[in-house]
Design a protein around this nucleic acid. Structure first.
Lengths: 253, 253
DNA sequence: CGCAGTGTTGAGACGCTTCAACTCACGTGG
DNA sequence: CCACGTGAGTTGAAGCGTCTCAACACTGCG
């Protein structure tokens, strides 16, 4: 599963078109800043020292990067590809807490064990750091710690939006929010505005939105019938009525 | 609503009995560390500089501290009392994203506007800091920023547990998790193990767990009938079967 | 005493889930 | 080239858990 590592560390790509839309939707005024932070705050010496600590690991689609409950000696950054992060209940119920894309951090948890499982959704490359040296570096690098705080706060704000979604929104509202929110996270998103790439399966969308695959399918059908979306292929769709979609996403009737 | 301020800053109280239980439940190995961080990491000079920036504000029960969408010039720490933090949908649906108790931070968000509303649940005292000087202080105080990062990661982990709860758990599982989790957060919790203080109303529990007040009431009744809990009063209950309660909370069976 | 706010309980409605059948795309091997 | 199998997605019908609506009980307070 793990490749022989060579040194590499790729900062998050700069802000991409379509970011404004997500920024508005998620009430986050600094989506651009998020990317900016990574590109800007880690100045060269720190970046170099980070690189010295990094191992590059390539993952095949479906490969498990970390497993919930396992000892947690590493932290990661995702260089390319996409990763699903989830928690399981004993009977198999799954909640996907996030999809990660190039530039995202992973494993920055408190404690000695991972509190989630992370799997590659497609062929991916990650940089791995041992936690100890990484923490030591943080201690000495204020910009680095600053960036981590910034990112963690960003994730927390997203998590709170997701709580609102899971606790109080209907199926169609969840899906609408998801479809508008997703492109802002995915550096590999298509250029064309309104186009949404869906690198995940229906089951993963369902487990992210707290629904079943059947409900996801039915909601997408309803959206098609209503003219909200069109689907050139299974893994891609076009938002035809962004205005109406946004209303649904925000729960405005 | 706001009192004339005098200087005051009270660090979080030290770890309290009952904390181990929560620590186990939430998969967080550092519940003690959380409190410890605040008491320990902010060493005297920093604490003093923080105090210089602080205004003390007293809140009556129900008072609004910050409102979602308003400009966000301040951050806060809660000195005593309890606060509910929530998001609203246009039609009034509410999701409470957290209950805050003495020692908790508030308002550490990215961007220029608050992304949530915060209201006092009971008479409370907060320390208020202007964001600018506070950020400047963070820049120069590594231990302070370290503490903030630690806390934010802690909150993020809790948020991910809440996503699992809201997305995949049944009503009784949600309530069980809530009842086991709550005492670990509340410094004013009763000494006796198994005793849970409920400073919030049914409506707030419901909006925190993504349920209705009727369902909350019915679940508590079911728990009473099953012998899982007993209720000396409306705002206090005793967990009679912590083992069975924990099974429910974790979705076993 | 009456009133308002809060909590409980019951009956019916509703939205999502469950279970099942079917379609479609894709790859494999005869 | 087609038969076959597999995994993913869609669609339909029935079931179930929670919600909605309504009535009632309890508490504190003027």
């Amino acid at each position: 599963m793990f490749d022989t590592p060579t040194l590499q560390l790729k900062p998050r790509s700069p802000p991409l078109p379509g970011c404004e839309e997500r920024s508005k939707l998620s009430d986050c005024s600094s989506c651009g800043a998020r990317a900016l932070t990574v590109c800007g705050a880690v100045d060269d010496p720190d970046l170099q020292r980070l690189s010295d600590l990094a191992e590059v690991i390539t993952l095949k689609a479906g490969a498990v990067l970390v497993r919930e409950g396992d000892p947690a000696p590493h932290v990661f950054t995702l260089t390319s590809g996409s990763i699903r992060v989830y928690k399981l209940l004993p009977d198999g119920r799954r909640q996907i807490t996030g999809f990660l894309f190039a530039g995202d951090f992973l494993g920055l948890a408190i404690g000695d064990a991972y509190v989630f499982t992370a799997e590659a959704m497609e062929a991916s490359i990650v940089c791995r750091f041992r936690k100890g040296p990484f923490r030591a570096l943080i201690e000495t690098s204020s910009p680095l710690e600053h960036m981590l705080l910034h990112r963690t706060m960003h994730e927390l704000a997203a998590a709170q939006n997701q709580m609102l979604l899971l606790g109080r929104k209907t199926a169609i509202e969840r899906m609408a929010y998801f479809l508008l929110d997703l492109p802002g996270h995915d550096p590999a998103r298509p250029i064309a505005p309104g186009h949404v790439r869906l690198p995940m399966k229906r089951a993963e969308i369902a487990d992210y939105l707290g629904l079943t695959i059947e409900t996801v399918s039915r909601v997408l059908t309803r959206m098609k019938v209503k003219g909200l979306i069109s689907t050139p292929s299974l893994n891609e769709l076009i938002i035809e009525r962004p205005d109406r979609m946004r209303q649904h996403a925000l729960g405005e009737v």
